[in-house]
Design a protein around this nucleic acid. Sequence first.
DNA 1: AATGAATGAGTATTCATTCAT
DNA 2: CATGAATGAATACTCATTCAT
Lengths: 185, 185, 185, 185
Amino acid sequence: MAEQVDRRQALVNAAFSAIAERGFEGFRLRPIAAAAGIDHSTLHHYFPTKADLIAAVLQHVTSQFEATMHVALEPAARLRRHLGEIAAAVVERPELFIVLDEFDLRARRDASMAATIKRDEQGWRDALVAIFEEGVEQRIWSVDLDVNASVELVIATLKGSRLRPETAEAVAKQLCDLFSTGARA
Amino acid sequence: MAEQVDRRQALVNAAFSAIAERGFEGFRLRPIAAAAGIDHSTLHHYFPTKADLIAAVLQHVTSQFEATMHVALEPAARLRRHLGEIAAAVVERPELFIVLDEFDLRARRDASMAATIKRDEQGWRDALVAIFEEGVEQRIWSVDLDVNASVELVIATLKGSRLRPETAEAVAKQLCDLFSTGARA
Amino acid sequence: MAEQVDRRQALVNAAFSAIAERGFEGFRLRPIAAAAGIDHSTLHHYFPTKADLIAAVLQHVTSQFEATMHVALEPAARLRRHLGEIAAAVVERPELFIVLDEFDLRARRDASMAATIKRDEQGWRDALVAIFEEGVEQRIWSVDLDVNASVELVIATLKGSRLRPETAEAVAKQLCDLFSTGARA
Amino acid sequence: MAEQVDRRQALVNAAFSAIAERGFEGFRLRPIAAAAGIDHSTLHHYFPTKADLIAAVLQHVTSQFEATMHVALEPAARLRRHLGEIAAAVVERPELFIVLDEFDLRARRDASMAATIKRDEQGWRDALVAIFEEGVEQRIWSVDLDVNASVELVIATLKGSRLRPETAEAVAKQLCDLFSTGARA
DNA sequence: AATGAATGAGTATTCATTCAT
DNA sequence: CATGAATGAATACTCATTCAT
């Protein structure tokens, strides 16, 4: 029983690494099976089709993004903490975000993949909305602040940082500073 | 003579559309040739290898991004104008940005592609640096403004908006507002 | 288990016949697979590349030339017997020698093939050297006999007979007669 | 007019070199045309089909083997001279003999090629027959000498030497010595 | 559960040849 | 004469999937 779970997980891990390194374009089942130490036809016992394995990888990836929101903190600090943590994650585990990018791009042509991603992002989006709404309520930010646009800005910025991990932290900090103090002389 | 150019261009256009619609993963030469109305072996007369065609598509894509900087404007207005124009382009021609995303992702595994993209982006990066440096000089923005981080923030944000065209304009405006006035109450 | 060996052998046999009949120039994999009664892609299950199949054919061919030297015989008789046996083989199985010729020619441009052939020929060459050295020692042949040149002469003659099987036996006999009566001590 | 002849010859020369270096297996028309400095479709103006060009190469090769028999010499000396000259040619222009080998092998599957080669060889064969018949007549060699077998032996030996130019001269000398001392009347 | 043999549709690429110019 | 565009049949090789064992 445990074997099964392990094998499945080994396959998902191998698939994840393969996608991170070579993208979907060069994603082939045989090397995945080989990396997991099993015959390539045995792989089909665990994942009947290639799409099934890919779906499992997506699950695996999204499951790593349990919202790390620190609700106890006041909004500005919470935003800073959140942006910092994600930027740090981009630096520490760039493959995770590379793979996410692959999935984001693929979701454009795969409805079920798009749905999974959207569901997963909703939690994130809601948490960000909460930050900004609380911040406005507490007069940290102006009542004129466009909450939705701010949320999308944060999301877009973080997504856009994924391909350049080396700039992720500076970018996150800069965005945070703009929200905190603005840029005027 | 004109025929040649047309055929080549027709192939590049067909390839561009195919990548926009199906990504690199499903990018096959036969349908491209068919879409251009020629035999698939004739395609190789124009582009000896698949990579050659892809390179031509990349050229075609990057050539559409002639810097649209309005140097006459003062820095803040220039930034606003620039962000607005790109956001508008994302809305009007989302495929262009989708394909750019495909190339960005592919560049991670293809050095020559990475070089082409980097060269192309350098002009953009330089123009943004100029905006912020002039802005700081003219005391529009604080001398403490991290110019490089700001540039990367703008780039990351715009790249991150590519996958969600519907939010691109609001996001660009929000970023611009933060630079102009900040968000404080 | 037996199936596997049979299929592999069937492919090698079919490949051998194809090379004998049409040479390397017209050597294509599909007809080989068809002759062995399998799909052309299944062929790649047994021989990943064309070169692998060709290498197997070479092995198969060289393995048929286990030295048929009769060490018990005295040198002159041994030479006569050897020449006679090879000439007879050229007559009985001309395809074997045709294919050998194809490989000899190909070896000029394929180092690993050249190595295999050379290794295989070394045994033959050594056995011939032994015949002539013993013959000189026993004063059957003159001490002035150039052993190496004699060995190369035998080899060249036999190789040169491959393309004209109908003359092979007369040629072998004639060469033998010359050695019998013309090189005496 | 002279241009035409030159172009044709340039193509034949280029084709000859290509066959010498890569054999028939890798013999392609485009590189031949390129080597001759013309477009690949212009080649078809001079040689409508690939086979036509190959036939011209064969003509070119066989034309280089004008019998170099020195009829004035007495038979044994004539044989020695002839063998020496061919062996020297093998050493000096190995490509010529390599290409001949390619043609010999190909002639097995191409009747018209076989005919051309046979016709060309007939002159050689006749000259060798004359040597041995005169030699027997003049009691240089025994009346028991098998003239035809001797001729075929000479031919086989020389053909067999083609693939090993480095041994050609020693082999020719050895064969000659055997005839000198071993077939005496 | 696991294997390896088998499949067939598909992949880029090649090449002799033809044809309009 | 010469060109380059165009063809189509062929070529080795790939890969997800299936099936008998």
